Simulated assay, not measured.
Amino acid sequence: MRRMNITGLGWSGSRTSAAPELAHFYANVLGLPLAHHEADFWVFTLPDGRNVEVFGEGYAGKQHMVTGPVVGFAVEDLPSAAEELRAAGVELLGEPGPTWQHFRGPDGNVYELVAD
């Protein structure tokens, strides 16, 4: 059986009722540069170029993120890795994005694969 090649953590996102406070913390305490902002959505860039995102409760499209922060595992071949999850009986959440696929882990939490 082929095994996906995880190359590292590729993304992190938090959907929270305290989104402005968390965004302020990322910017002003952790010192992460703000790469993008719109209503209820902030994107910060890590030194390696990967992103950390903050979603307010009103941001559309992230309603499945209710278990806490979501981490994305970077993989070399996203379509193959998602198919491996499917073949293993893992619940894939929603349609895949151009560079990601969310899934539910055996602990009930939401995770994602992200193209490296």
Rank of each mutant, 00 (worst) to 15 (best):
A87V: 00
M65S: 07
E112K: 13
A87M: 04
K62W: 03
S14R: 13
P47M: 06
R15D: 02
L93S: 04
L46P: 03
L113Y: 04
W11T: 06
V52M: 06
P47S: 07
F25N: 08
H64I: 14
L78T: 06
E84Y: 04
N28E: 14
L46G: 08
G10E: 03
A82E: 12
V71G: 04
P106M: 05
R104S: 10
E76T: 15
A88G: 11
F41N: 11
M4N: 09
W100M: 13
G10F: 01
Y26S: 03
R104I: 02
L78F: 04
A115L: 14
G61L: 05
M65G: 02
D40I: 00
H37D: 01
K62I: 05
H37I: 02
V110M: 04
E21P: 01
V70F: 03
D48V: 08
V52N: 06
L113P: 14
V71A: 12
A35K: 10
P106Q: 10
L9W: 05
P106F: 01
D77A: 12
A82K: 10
D107M: 12
A18P: 03
R104K: 15
R2F: 05
G31Q: 12
R50Y: 06
S12H: 10
E53H: 06
V54T: 11
W100F: 14
D40K: 03
G61T: 11
R86F: 02
Y26H: 09
V52G: 06
E95K: 13
G56H: 03
I6P: 13
G56S: 06
Q101W: 07
N51C: 10
V66H: 15
R104H: 11
G108M: 09
T45P: 09
L85I: 02
H36T: 07
V29N: 05
V114C: 08
D107P: 14
F73N: 14
N109L: 07
A115R: 14
V29R: 08
S14C: 09
A82H: 01
V71F: 12
N51K: 13
W42T: 11
E76M: 00
G105A: 15
E112D: 13
G56T: 03
A60H: 12
R50C: 02
G13Q: 13
G31C: 03
P98I: 00
Y59A: 03
L32H: 09
P33Y: 00
A60D: 15
